[in-house]
Amino acid sequence: MNDPIIQTNELTKYYNKGKANEVLAVSGVSIGIRRGDFAVLKGPSGSGKTTMLSLLGCMTRPTSGSITLEGRDISHLPERFLTDIRRTTYGFIFQQFHLIQGMSVLQNVMLPLYPTDVDLPKLKKKAEGLLEGIGMMKRRDFPVQGLSGGEQQRTAIARALINSPEIVLADEPTAHLDTALSRNFMAIMKDLWEKGKTVIIASHDPIVFENEYAALVVEMRDGAVRNVTRK
């Protein structure tokens, strides 16, 4: 139980390396996240939280250093293996929600599993179950561009959960929400965490990093880890 599900070692990420606009986004980060952790990456804008979340979520590869997922080094896997990990292990909630415009709530939730061999009727049923769980069933056939910010985020949460992921990643999830909706979001995250999911959130919002169940808070600044607090 206490073995890290994700372990990074001297993780470093440059953007545009060797060019005039080179940026060092993450520098030598070594952290361990345990299975069932509620982890928060905390820090101001430009501190490297989002890049760190991308690296952990197999959205990009590190320039140097390594990431192990359940003991397996995934730092330099070919793209199709990383895609497979994203599809089977992770559920990602984006800061801008990133729902597909013009499609309904239900279709957006079903989206990650379209290119799999799951039957569409079964997939639809599962998506409806998730929408029911987050109180969005009434909006299932609405086009997503007509939803409020809170509703869009709940749709994004349902989409992140459609593949029954072990790890849920969220990038600045409360940035576009008012206090009440932010608390709502945290309640959903708490519920997932209590069901055994590993939750990793990047945020600079106190509602997120000051909550009592955030077992691990990693404070970042200028791409490096400044402080790690484990409760």
């Binding site: 089977t88 599993l113 379209y114």
Partner: peptide, 22 residues
């Protein structure tokens, strides 16, 4: 820009490059 973004979203949520090409 919208089409590029959509492809990025699909990739991010688990679509393979071959799925997008298909």
């Amino acid at each position: 820009a919208e089409e590029k973004k959509e492809i990025g979203i699909l990739k991010a949520i688990g679509w393979e490059t071959s799925d997008i090409i298909e």
